Simulated scan of single mutants.
Amino acid sequence: MRLVTFEQGGAARLGILRKDEAAVIPLETLLIDYPDMTALIEHLTDEERERMEQAAEAEEGIPMAQLRLLAPILHPRHDVLCVGQNYVAHAIESAKFKGIEYKKAEYPVYFSKRVDCSVAPGGAIKCHGELTKQLDYEVELAVIIGKTCSHVSREEAFSYVFGYSIGNDISARDIQNRHKQYSFGKGLDGSFPMGPCIVTKEELPSPPYLKIQSWVNGELRQDGNTDDFIFDIPELISQLSQGITLEPGDILITGTPSGVGMGFHPPKFLKAGDVVTCRIEGIGTLENVVED
């Protein structure tokens, strides 16, 4: 099942993608009413889920051309949880950019990304030209937590996953390096495109070994697979949950493969007018334009 937040007539609404992905079935037509995606994730019943799955097979819905997709979780309840350098090749290119020797990490690098409003598919990534000259892209698999999660084991971890989406961890490298931490450089306004949907976990393999790619202006930049994780999803969820209670609707982005802008010689940072396309097998495509 593929869940979306969409806009029609100026209001944000929830829906499910029809199986052929040519239309959206609004949830209110199924007499299912939640104020936003986080509330749906937290309170969805088995009976409602069954109705939604049946509707995706049979209902006509609203054609995609008549609506605008928004980020599926428009206003995250907490900062987005992030994992840095979770693919070996990206960790190596990051070390080279910083002029240091690569050493395989013993523990994951965790940080949080401030997100007031996620950027919609087709929406604008802010250039922030007055602050940064090194704006970069990072396609990432986003894991959506489905229920309250505290002190869980690796073996239990996938039972706490609701589904998956695509996130683009837009990063200002010069700010990031100048301040010696990630919060400012990763948390600029308009720096978290997300979408186009949330795919519920039963739609994908477990673990989800998926092809993950990005393009800038049609040039393939990143081309990896999530089976290259250094630290896998069960380890990340279990480890975080030992000290942080994860809640329904929380977003965990799991690192990016090599091929980001800072990894080229010379670097290929983003500029106004660039089109960034992110694609993950089994989920879809997220495309955004960089604007001043």
Rank of each mutant, 00 (worst) to 15 (best):
L67K: 07
G146E: 08
T29P: 02
L30G: 04
K211Y: 06
L67A: 01
G259L: 03
T256H: 08
D36R: 01
I73V: 14
Q239V: 15
G185A: 08
V275L: 14
T285W: 13
H151F: 13
P207A: 10
K126I: 14
Y110C: 06
L246F: 10
S159F: 05
S191N: 12
C197V: 14
L220G: 11
E48Y: 00
H90P: 03
T285Y: 08
T277S: 13
E202S: 12
D228Q: 13
V260D: 00
E287D: 07
F158S: 04
P193C: 12
I62G: 00
I230A: 03
P108M: 03
N217H: 05
H78L: 13
E155C: 07
P63G: 09
R154K: 15
E291F: 05
G224L: 01
L246Q: 01
G84N: 12
E7A: 05
P63V: 03
T5D: 02
E7S: 15
F6L: 04
K104C: 10
T245E: 11
I41H: 13
V260F: 03
E101D: 13
T254C: 15
I237T: 04
E156Y: 08
V83Q: 00
E202V: 10
N225G: 02
Q85H: 10
Y87W: 08
W215K: 10
I198H: 01
A39H: 10
E156K: 15
F231L: 11
V199K: 09
A120F: 05
F158H: 06
L220I: 15
V276C: 11
F184T: 14
P267Y: 01
H179D: 15
I166C: 02
E21N: 12
L27C: 12
L135C: 03
R173Q: 14
T29R: 15
R77H: 14
I144C: 07
M262F: 12
A58C: 09
V143T: 03
K211T: 12
S159G: 10
T45K: 11
I175E: 04
V275H: 09
L81R: 09
L44P: 03
F162L: 02
L286P: 08
G122K: 11
A120M: 09
V289W: 05
Q66K: 08
G163V: 11
P257G: 12
E7C: 12
L252P: 00
S214P: 10
E247I: 07
K126S: 14
G84S: 10
I212G: 02
I230F: 01
T285G: 05
K104L: 14
P35Q: 14
E28I: 07
K103T: 15
